[in-house]
Design a protein around this nucleic acid. Structure first.
Lengths: 233, 233
DNA sequence: AACTGTTTCAAACGTTCGTTTAAATCATAC
DNA sequence: GTATGATTTAAACGAACGTTTGAAACAGTT
């Protein structure tokens, strides 16, 4: 069916433009022009611009979360009865998202930026489209994380997972680009070591991933605070 | 001068609407209506909508960064010759940003969400407006962090600061609201402990700050990797 | 070859956008 | 109280927005 081509072309163009300029700053005309299709094709195939936003995410999130769950099952199966390590669980959660960047053919880098954008832009979108897609991932990884972090108070646990997601989202949104470096350098700011970084280092996805995991392990395993009385509810 | 009132009213309204819906999704008419001023007042006082975006940030960033630098000077002055601790430096950097939420009178909570948005939306904006304002903070804290993390390889150091900023930005953008909780609960996702959190806990700024600091200390102090040869440049 | 359902296309729809205009209003000084 | 500069106001501007339309082009079937 010829319609499939048009749909894909629209989604590719929308994904790129959304990641570059945001959702509301990207016009339907810009999408269809970049896709090389007629203006009306977007409404014909998707119904509305909002539906395109949903479709862009749903095209990528499904495979991404399926990979996360599969990796988690693998490390749980291949670990003995003592269960997987914290690093194993973290890697299963973070690797599929970060490693998308290493496959530019699938538009992964664009989508990484887009996911980071989705985390902070459009609260409506996140709660409706994403939450539904992420419900099972939340459930499964929540159990896995609690098993490897048994001594962490529940509240502390919640917040630390929150911080890990923040570090991940920020990395997804920015690390693929060299914005930080460019910004700092253009301002003449010199941070020891930073200026000696080259693009190879910055675009090495595996290195970024292992650094993020190492950081998250350290943060999650930090000494738990003494429990504070909060009025037993 | 009566014009000052109008300027402030426009900035207040713009700050709230930008934080709620993003920059390009907020119209000039929505801003001036919420501000209770005439439509043309915005262009009369600021020249353009883009100039309002700049002004909204500049009104808050200056005091915020001044407080950061002052706190850093204080902990450096009051610590002996062994210098401040990592937690001291982290607190000086993170506290002014996170604690803005505890002063709703100054519109701090709105601005926290806005800052988180600014970190991920509008790359142009960040590199131009923010970078200029943050240059000195970057410089000063870079030196302080390197002093308390002397054994960290420069590249690792760069990335870990990056992750800390991500955790901070994500917290700024989302933690003031209960979006995560609401989302999870509305989806029926049950994470042990999470459902027992109440609003008091979630809105306790000091608790969030200390949790973030504890997480960041753990992440930053995680064991450094063995140096990898990357082609000496 | 005629028919049927799908997809493409140029054109136009009504709305909203950011901005501008010129007159009206206000504050202040003379 | 009248002149002057700053501010506010209602109205309108052209441009861009998302969407709709109806005809043309295409595919596949009979």
């Amino acid at each position: 069916m010829a319609g499939e081509d048009t749909r894909e072309k629209v989604l590719d163009a929308a994904e790129e433009l959304f990641s570059e300029h945001g959702f509301s700053a990207t016009s339907v005309r810009a999408i269809t022009t970049q896709a090389g299709v007629n203006l009306a094709a977007l409404n014909y195939h998707f119904g509305s611009k909002d539906a395109v936003v949903d479709a862009v995410f749903e095209r990528r999130i499904g495979p991404l979360n399926r990979e996360r769950l599969q990796l988690l099952e693998e490390v749980e199966a291949h670990s003995g009865q003592e269960g997987p390590t914290l690093e194993d669980v973290l890697r299963a959660f973070l690797a599929p998202a970060i490693q998308l960047a290493s496959d530019p053919g699938s538009g992964g880098e664009r989508f990484m930026k887009l996911m980071g954008r989705g985390h902070s832009e459009s609260g409506d979108f996140f709660s409706k489209v994403i939450a539904r897609q992420f419900a099972e991932v939340f459930r499964r990884f929540s159990r896995a994380f609690r098993r490897v972090l048994p001594d962490l108070p529940p509240e502390e646990y919640f917040w630390r997972i929150h911080f890990v997601i923040g570090a991940m989202a920020h990395t997804m949104a920015h690390s693929a680009t060299l914005r930080y470096l460019e910004t700092l350098q253009s301002e003449g700011v010199t941070i020891e070591g930073v200026l000696s970084l080259d693009k190879v280092t910055l675009n090495d996805t595996d290195a970024v991933l292992s650094r993020l995991i190492r950081f998250a392990v350290g943060g999650l395993q930090a000494e738990a605070p003494v429990p504070v009385e909060v009025g037993s509810k």
